[in-house]
Amino acid sequence: MIKVLKAGLETSIQDYPGRIGYWNQGFPPSGPMDSWSFRFANVLVGNQPGAAGLECQFLGPTLFFDADTVIAVTGADMRPALDGEPFPMWQSVAVRARQTLALGAARVGGRAYIAVAGGFANEERLGSRSTFNKAGVGGIDGHSIKAGQDLPVAEGRGTPGLLVPNEHRPDIRTDRTWTIEVCAGPNDDWIDDAGKKRFLSSAWTLSAKSDRTGFRLQGPEWTFTEKAYNKPKEHGSLPSNIIDHGYPLGAINLAGQTPIILVNDGPSMGGFINPYTVPSAAFWKLGQARPGEHLHFRLVSVAEAQRMAKQIAERCVREILVNA
């Protein structure tokens, strides 16, 4: 068991790839936003890459361990410490019974991941242990962790002293600027050439009104093609309205003039167009971007986006680890 002393900011149990197969009932996959860092945390402690771990957002938790185990912390730099003694991230570390793990506020990046040998053993809901906080599904009692809770951990065996080499870690930016890959479509033909050019050449500011359901962007106006105005009235009155349709995960959803990137806990359908889609390989960047930072978008083909995802998956394996 691990006891929660301080919860941090909506710290939640997630597994990867999450709750898959229920999109047609309105369930998002949930899961870690930066699955690159998440998978490495698991691999470091000897787990399957997708085992249930903790996602810490901006402000980390304080946890009390009642048994010896091995843990790893990856992702955003939250200066983890055991009984007040700082220890390095991106490596497996032995924890003794009755030690306290504390993570602070994120100095670099937005989300850190804690994996424990064996993984968390909370009850599965629809095939996943991931937390969908908004609807109260998965995790512990459906929500992010709370002070006083006991988090069940499965039996596991980890080896301390393993390390993810620098060159295999995601490059978490410190200059407040991110280049995010996007694929065109499904509704890019609703945006006129000037609008497309503006989207791809502007710096978009990530709003603080962003969470695991959607990332709101601030930037220039959108302009539309004839298609957005000349349509049956059941589409709705705004140029960005369309007859309700399914949303892909990562959709850049145009609600009026405000683009919202639909992320891990986002809605499955609705009545706005999605001119571009952020592919899965770029999600880790969204997970590490912070409010007020700038996003630039770079157009890639579907094939290139698929190649990038494959390269990340091939990295997040035990063979990459070295001795610290």
Binding site: F58, L59, A105, R290, P291, G292
Partner: peptide
């Protein structure tokens, strides 16, 4: 000091 990153 700021307790966490964000907008002030």
């Amino acid at each position: 000091l700021a307790p966490l990153p964000g907008l002030f």
